[in-house]
Write a protein that binds this DNA or RNA. Structure first.
Lengths: 205, 205
DNA sequence: ACCTGAACACCGTTCAAGT
DNA sequence: ACCTGAACACCGTTCAAGT
């Protein structure tokens, strides 16, 4: 652990995030971040152990920006929806960091506070014990998958193009489904899937 | 597109997968794969356009191994559970490729056949039209998130350690939940979350 | 025609040297 | 004490040359 002087770890993270937002994740390197800060490459190592830690700081910066305060909403379903939407919007504002969020997610105190709030709402819904663990992890799994699907899935329409070119005889349902898929926006899709998970939590045996 | 002679793209993919399985994803490079095949680095470019395409071939090799045939099961829920389990097992057998599956998923014809089968089961369940699109994407989102959480989440217990060290006063629910989480295995967690999604699909309005 | 090695422009990181 | 640039061991990929 180095002892920062002229800069804070937060400023390092902000510079790295600026590089990612402007030039994409592929452009992130110790050299580009140092350049963004107007310092030598090696000076970075005074604030950060290695590249992995730098990535962790970026994820922390993004996820700490997620509002973890008790959400509005008449029902617990509405409140969870607000909470899930906050993560989706925050991460969606920095799509370049999406591939980093999975591996470095645990470093954010903000996302832990967010999880605490989610657990509180689940408790209000009457979900207790191990059932609540499964509900939280299920919710988290959906959230992670949905956000990745939204931002890394199509890759400039390559996926939908592949499906469109499928032989109808062999893939009758996929062809039919592709037609419907065009009518559904990302927002609607996300909330439709989330509604499934929420109904599943509500309809517990 | 080069014209392979002595080797097929499948053999290239198998060599790359062998490197990943043995030494991890970080060890994957054009040089190590070429070495695995006993050929010069540049000879690889006769079979593959670039590194990105090589990664795509590996994902294809893994996902094409997913059985897409009509699954056994008395109810549609059981049949979807079997289908989801096949993906989880196949990917879980090669955890190093997990980070690659998201970006290259669309290249696999096997996963398209799998999706076709899933859509067929959803149709048997009476899920139709845009609702079926949302159900498939929701299921896929859960599957992606759950598999990633299982294989990239803790990172050698770092995550659970972070949660265990949380101040109880500020995170009462997380502390309580962490205790329950220890009692639940990965298998149970996966199927518990999947059951939530399936109940949500069944309980549609 | 197929394959090769040298070379180029990048990486992350180490280390000895500067102030 | 803090910061620097050269250097090392890697990358992916280009290209001219070999058979």
């Amino acid at each position: 652990m180095p002892r920062p002087r002229s800069l804070t770890q937060g400023q390092i993270a902000a510079a790295a995030l600026a590089v990612i937002d402007r030039d994409g994740l592929a452009a992130l390197s110790m050299r580009t971040v140092a350049g963004e800060l107007g310092m030598s490459t090696m000076a970075l190592y005074r604030y950060v152990g290695d590249r992995d830690e730098l990535e962790g700081l970026v994820v922390e910066l993004v996820l700490d920006g997620v509002d973890a305060s008790p959400p509005p909403g008449a029902t617990w379903q509405e409140r969870i929806t607000v909470l899930a939407g906050r993560v989706r919007e925050r991460v969606g504002a920095h799509p370049g960091v999406v591939p980093l969020t999975m591996t470095h997610r645990h470093r954010s105190a903000g996302i832990l506070r967010w999880s605490e709030t989610v657990l509180g709402v689940l408790a209000e819904a009457g979900v207790e014990g191990p059932e609540r663990v499964v509900a939280l992890r299920g919710l988290l799994s959906y959230l992670i998958g949905a956000i990745q699907l939204e931002h890394l899935g199509p890759l400039s329409g390559e996926g939908t193009a592949a499906i469109a070119g499928l032989p109808r005889a062999e893939f009758p349902r996929m062809a039919e489904t592709a037609g419907h898929a065009l009518l559904i926006g990302a927002e609607e899709e996300f909330h439709g899937g989330l509604a499934i998970v929420l109904r599943g939590i509500a309809a517990r045996t």
